[in-house]
Design a protein around this nucleic acid. Structure first.
Lengths: 116, 116
DNA sequence: CCGTATCCCTCCGGATACTG
DNA sequence: CAGTATCCGGAGGGATACGG
């Protein structure tokens, strides 16, 4: 089925980008505001966090709620679609954790062979 | 757990790149040679297919078997690790197929709002 | 048939500085 | 606090040509 390859690829592209999965996972524990996410993630730039959240919002995975106080407050929360997505994403994450050493060993062997 | 974030990210990066998942899925139906993969995928350049296969081989997901005939013949096959990976990857693929329309609708709505 | 090398271009993502 | 604008380096990935 080449027809739905594109749509599958689009989802995988989201999943594969540098921050989306991490953000979705964190929001899986409940709604959070921008600065909380930024602090918890640690190594992300302001720009990329904004970009990532916009993408997730666009695809319907998170909602964005602005409270126009001073200073402003913005909360992000998973939609039901986002919580749905969390299921297969977590499965993949668990797989990665369980098999990390196998992959690392394979890499070490491969790189060893290549050094000749 | 920030410790295993890196390893998880590495797997997700593989999954998220443009061709790896497609190649692994195709090899899920059995061993194939280079030109078969190339023909079935359709839109991939020779360079990227080689690169993708090398990466998958390095991580221990596929084996590469050269038959030094003339012309040469090279077969690729999933390892047990590769077949393992197929399970969560297929789950994610199924999810993408089932929810494609929800995502598309969310995008259409978002883009509509943004046009104002 | 299979792989490498080269060129080139796009886009991701970080750093920084500035608005409301 | 949250977001935008700008600049910039580098990786990803396509086209082409060549080698074994």
């Amino acid at each position: 089925m080449p027809s739905d390859c594109r749509s599958v690829n689009e989802i995988l592209a989201r999943v594969g980008d540098k921050w989306s999965v991490l953000v979705v996972s964190l929001l899986g524990d409940g709604a959070m505001r921008f600065s909380e996410l930024r602090r918890l993630i640690g190594g992300i730039s302001q720009k990329m966090l904004t970009t990532t959240l916009r993408g997730l919002e666009r695809d319907g995975f998170v909602t964005r709620t602005v409270t126009p106080t001073i200073p402003p407050r913005v909360d992000y929360e998973l939609t039901s679609l986002g919580r749905d997505l969390l299921v297969p994403v977590r499965a993949l994450g668990d797989w990665a954790r369980h098999n990390r050493s196998r992959v690392e060993k394979a890499r070490a062997r491969f790189d060893q062979m290549a050094k000749s």
